[in-house]
Amino acid sequence: MVRFGYTMMTEQAGPRELVEHVVGAERAGFDFAVISDHYFPWLDAQGHSPYAWSVLGAAAQATTAIPLMTYVTCPTVRYHPAVVAQKAATVQLLSEGRFRLGLGSGENLNEHVVGPGWPAAHIRLEMLEEAVEIIRELFGGGSVNHHGRYFDVENARLWDLPDEPPPIGVAVSGDRSCELAGRLADLAIAIDPERELLEAFDRSGGAGKPKVGQLAVCYDVDRDTAVKRAHEQFRWSLGGWRVNAELPGPAAFEQASRYVRPEDVAESIPCGEDVNVFVDAVRPFVDAGFTEVALVQVGGAHQYPFLEWAEATLLPALRAMRPAGPSATLED
Rank of each mutant, 00 (worst) to 15 (best):
G5F: 15
M8V: 08
T10N: 14
A13C: 14
A13L: 12
G14R: 07
P15L: 10
L18V: 14
V19I: 11
G29A: 04
G29R: 11
D31G: 08
D37T: 01
H38E: 06
W42K: 03
W42I: 01
D44C: 04
G47I: 01
H48A: 14
H48P: 02
P50D: 13
P50S: 12
A52K: 05
L56I: 13
L56A: 07
A59E: 07
A59Y: 10
M69K: 15
T70W: 09
T73C: 11
T73Y: 12
C74N: 15
H80P: 14
V83G: 13
T90M: 02
S95H: 07
S95E: 06
L101G: 11
G104V: 05
G104T: 03
N108A: 12
N110I: 03
N110P: 10
E111V: 06
H112D: 15
H112A: 09
V114L: 10
P116H: 11
W118G: 01
I123S: 03
M127L: 11
I134N: 04
I135D: 05
I135S: 01
R136W: 00
E137N: 08
F139S: 15
F139R: 03
G140R: 09
G140Y: 00
N145Q: 09
N145E: 00
H147G: 04
G148N: 09
F151Q: 10
E154Y: 06
R157E: 10
L158V: 10
P162H: 15
E164P: 08
A171L: 09
A171R: 08
S173H: 12
G174D: 08
R176N: 11
L180S: 10
R183V: 07
A185S: 11
A185G: 15
A190E: 07
R195D: 07
L198I: 00
L198R: 01
L198P: 02
A200H: 10
G205T: 05
G205C: 05
P210T: 04
Y219I: 00
V221R: 08
D222G: 06
D224T: 06
W236I: 05
L238K: 04
W241A: 05
V243T: 15
N244V: 05
A245R: 14
P250E: 01
A252L: 04
A252I: 08
A252G: 11
A252Y: 00
E254H: 07
S257H: 02
E263T: 03
A266E: 00
E267G: 11
E267L: 13
S268P: 10
I269A: 01
C271M: 00
E273P: 08
E273C: 15
E273Q: 14
V279L: 03
V282A: 15
T291K: 00
T291Y: 01
V293P: 09
V293Y: 06
A294W: 04
H302Q: 13
P305H: 00
F306C: 01
W309Q: 02
E311T: 04
A312T: 06
T313I: 04
A317N: 03
A320L: 12
M321F: 07
P323T: 05
G325V: 03
S327V: 13
T329C: 12
T329S: 14
L330C: 02
L330E: 06
D332L: 15
D332T: 14
